[in-house]
Design a protein around this nucleic acid. Structure first.
Length: 376
DNA sequence: CGCCCTTTGAAGCAT
DNA sequence: ATGCTTCAAAGGGCG
């Protein structure tokens, strides 16, 4: 996470990051900044008054987030808050989940332990949603009641302590049919997860059907790729003859990623841009413009995804994907590649510090009249 | 073909 | 403890 600016004054941290952007969208930027500064006081107050405003004070939600510093502080604060909340709800987190619509809670009965699952339903679910449509999207728009304990869908024994244990709970395995040894055998990755939740238990279905989350370790995995390879054409892998590569369990999506997934399509529709880098910039700005309450929804979702991810893959570590890289194979070569990548990044940073050449994309941004984007 | 770009946040690693 | 790095998604651009 972006390091919290320790109150170091610049709270518009984004400014630095957005310099080139600012040129283009100065007007909009100003408007937004003003709005932020205006909100600052109120924001500060509200945060001092009650960090649980999310649940308790809808009005406070109107208070928008302030400058970057505070914005950056929020997630942590909020996380604390969420922890508190989850502690409060504990024992009840999955018993009475805050999000009725959360995939976790959307497990269709057929996927519950004693139910049978029709292959067809599985197949359908498996199809990647139209791009930009995160499976979670269906949960959104969230309403306040997303935060109110309510769902009866989950078994009481799903409850857990806030600090989610890394070991497999019996209950879960019951629901997700995790193989006893674990994770290495099931490898849904996160789209994964949301998918799995909607589909039913786990990437590896009780029936043994793999999940789209299981990312083939063949370089950049996109959904299409694993949707196809994992579900549609299981037999269509001529290359695969080599040796079964270890699938990659992907990182759970963080709040912003979830937000992006949901909003991307919308943004793309609103402006005709397709370039992800540009879209992401817009989304980043929009993210900052969200109210705390709005963001809280995503933080909460992300937290739940992480928890479920931990439960599904107790032994998984983000580190696995470090060394494995996108290839999914943790070998010497990949370690080497990893090193290269690392080096590249450092070089890049040095470059930018020393006023290195600008990226082609920067140029694109300037030329592409981002005013259009900024409006969005 | 495969990396880059771009965003934020989580997690791992290095100091 | 703090700061840096990588990786999550996405898809056009580019060498």
């Amino acid at each position: 996470m972006p390091q919290l600016s320790s109150g170091g004054g610049d709270d518009l941290g984004a400014n630095d990051e957005m310099i080139s952007f600012k040129d283009e969208g100065e007007q909009e930027e100003k408007i937004q900044e003003n709005a932020f500064t205006e909100r600052d006081l109120a924001d500060l107050k509200s945060s001092l008054v009650n960090e649980s405003e999310i649940n308790q004070s809808p009005n406070a939600a109107a208070v928008r987030r302030g400058q970057q510093g505070e914005q950056r502080g929020f997630p942590d604060k909020h996380r604390e808050h969420l922890d508190v909340v989850s502690k409060q709800q504990d024992g009840g987190m999955y018993k009475s989940p805050g999000y009725p619509g959360y995939p976790f809670l959307m497990l269709p009965d057929p996927y519950l332990p004693n139910s049978s699952v029709s292959p067809s339903s599985n197949k359908v679910s498996v199809v990647q949603q139209s791009h930009g449509m995160h499976p979670l999207t269906s949960l959104l728009p969230y309403s306040n009641d997303h935060f109110s304990p309510s769902s009866p869908h989950l078994p009481t024994d799903m409850s857990q302590k806030t600090g989610v244990h890394r070991h497999q709970s019996q209950d879960l395995s019951g629901y997700y049919s995790l193989p006893p040894g674990g994770v290495s055998q099931i490898t849904p990755s996160m789209s994964w997860f949301s998918h799995s939740l909607m589909l039913g238990p786990s990437g590896m279905h009780p029936t043994g059907i793999p999940h789209p989350a299981i990312v083939p370790p063949t370089g950049k995995q996109d959904h299409e790729q694993y949707d196809r390879s994992m579900y549609v054409k299981p037999q269509m892998e001529p290359k695969r003859e080599k040796e079964p590569k270890k699938p990659v369990i992907k990182k759970p999506l963080n709040a912003f990623m979830l937000y992006m997934k949901e909003m991307r399509a919308k943004v793309i529709a609103e402006c005709t841009l397709k370039e992800s880098a540009a879209i992401n910039q817009i989304l980043g700005r929009r993210w900052h413009a969200l109210t705390r309450e709005e963001q809280a929804k995503y933080y909460e979702l992300a937290r739940k995804e992480r928890q479920l991810h931990m439960q599904l893959y107790p032994t998984w570590s983000a580190r696995d994907n470090y060394e494995a890289g996108l290839s999914g194979v943790a070998g010497e070569k990949n370690k080497a590649d990893w090193g290269k990548k690392k080096r590249r990044k450092r070089e890049k940073q040095q470059d930018s510090n020393t006023g290195g050449k600008r990226s082609a994309f920067a140029t694109f941004k300037e030329e592409a009249a981002p005013a259009q984007l900024l409006q969005i």
